[in-house]
C-alpha cells in the first residue's frame, strides 16, 4: 500500500474563524438582481451560515443552475460551478462522491429544480447525498421575463399562459419527502434570521437537505407580494407536529403548500430523518473508497492498478 499522502487540499477541514466578507468576491461584479429581489436574502443567509460554521471559502463547492438564482456563485466567492439549466444536482453530487470532504451546495430556481431538473431532484433526494440544495422559489420565470413556472398558482396569467395556467402547481416539499430527502425546510428571504439558521442546519445535516427558499420577484411576480406575514411553524401553537414523523410531516407539508396560495406563508423545518447518506451506503457495500478519490491523484506514491493484471480471464 502507498504511504499517507501529504494533504493536497489545504483549505479543507481548517475550522478557522471566518469573516463573512471572505465570501465576497475581490472584484465584485455588478449584481444582475433587481432592487428588492429575494435572491439577495439567500446570498446573505448563505454567507452568514457558512461563516458561523467556519467553512473556508475554498472547501466549498457551490454549483448552480441557470436563471437569476444561478448567479449566486457569481456573488459568493468559493469554488463554483455555474452549470446548465436544471443540471446543478448531478454535477454537485458527483463532486461530493469524488471528494466527500468538500462542502457541496447546489442552488437554482423553481423552474430549474422542479421543472427541467425535476428528474435529478427526485433522484438526488432518493440517493440522499450529503449536500444542501437551495431552491429559489419565486413562482415565476424571472430572467426570461415572467412566464408561468412549475410553482405558479393555478390560474396565473402570463404571456405564455394568456388565459391563466390550467395546471395545479407542483408541491415541492411533498416531492422532496416522497423522493427521499432527509431534511426538508421552507424559508423566505424576508425572514433572514430563520433563513440563516435553516441553511446552517441544512449544511450540518448528513444527508440531502432541501430548502424551498421563497424569494420574492418584485419585477415579474408582483402578485405574490413579499411573502409576509410569515409564520414559523415551529413557533406557532397552531402547528404542532413531529418533524421526524413522516406521516405528520407529510400532512404539515400539504397544508403549507396549500396555504401559500391562500396568502399564508408557513415556513420552518418540515422533516428531518437520520438515515445514512449515500456516501455511507455506498461505502458499506464496498463501491466507494474510504479515502477521498480526488486525493489519490496527488499522491505520488500511490500504486495504480493496471489492466495487465486483469488479463487472466482473457487467456
Amino acid at each position: 500500500m502507498s504511504s499517507q499522502p501529504t494533504d493536497p487540499f489545504g483549505a479543507i477541514g481548517q475550522n478557522r474563524e471566518i469573516e463573512q466578507d471572505e465570501y465576497t468576491p475581490g472584484i465584485e461584479p455588478q449584481a444582475t438582481w433587481c432592487p428588492g429581489c429575494g435572491d439577495f436574502g439567500v446570498l446573505k443567509a448563505l454567507k452568514g451560515a457558512m461563516a458561523e460554521l467556519g467553512r473556508d471559502p475554498e472547501e466549498i463547492l457551490l454549483a448552480t443552475g441557470i436563471g437569476c438564482s444561478g448567479k449566486l456563485n457569481s456573488y459568493f466567492s468559493s469554488y463554483g460551478f455555474h452549470t446548465i439549466h436544471g443540471r446543478s444536482l448531478p454535477v454537485a453530487r458527483a463532486a461530493k462522491l469524488a471528494n466527500p470532504d468538500l462542502e457541496v451546495v447546489a442552488a437554482g430556481g423553481d423552474g430549474d429544480g422542479y421543472g427541467i431538473g425535476g428528474n435529478h431532484f427526485m433522484h438526488t433526494a432518493r440517493e440522499n447525498h450529503d449536500m444542501t440544495y437551495i431552491v429559489f422559489n419565486n413562482e415565476i420565470f424571472g430572467l426570461t421575463k415572467g412566464q408561468t413556472s412549475p410553482t405558479s398558482p393555478k390560474g396565473h396569467k402570463s404571456k405564455t399562459q394568456p388565459h391563466g395556467s390550467a395546471k395545479d402547481p407542483i408541491r415541492p416539499l411533498s416531492l422532496a419527502l416522497t423522493s427521499g430527502a432527509s431534511y426538508v425546510a421552507r424559508t423566505a428571504a424576508v425572514n433572514p434570521n430563520q433563513a440563516k439558521e435553516i441553511i446552517t442546519e441544512a449544511v450540518e445535516h448528513d444527508g440531502f437537505a432541501h430548502i424551498d427558499f421563497l424569494t420574492q420577484c418584485p419585477t415579474w411576480n408582483k402578485d405574490a407580494k413579499q411573502y409576509v406575514p410569515y409564520t414559523d411553524i415551529q413557533d406557532s401553537d397552531e402547528y404542532d407536529f413531529d418533524v421526524t414523523d413522516r406521516r405528520e410531516a407529510s400532512e404539515a407539508m400539504y397544508e403549507a403548500e396549500n396555504a401559500l396560495y391562500e396568502g399564508e406563508v408557513l415556513t420552518g423545518r418540515f422533516f428531518k430523518d437520520d438515515r445514512p447518506s449515500y456516501g455511507q451506503e455506498k461505502r458499506a457495500v464496498g463501491e466507494m473508497p474510504e479515502q477521498p478519490l480526488a486525493e489519490r491523484y496527488f499522491d505520488d506514491d500511490h500504486e495504480w492498478e493496471r489492466s495487465y493484471d486483469l488479463l487472466d480471464r482473457h487467456k
Binding site: 454535477v91 463532486a95 471528494n99 491523484y297
Partner: peptide
C-alpha cells in the same frame, strides 16, 4: 453531468 462534476473535483 456527473462525469463533469467528478472531473471538476479532481478525478
Amino acid at each position: 453531468a456527473l462525469a463533469l462534476g467528478a472531473s471538476h473535483a479532481g478525478a
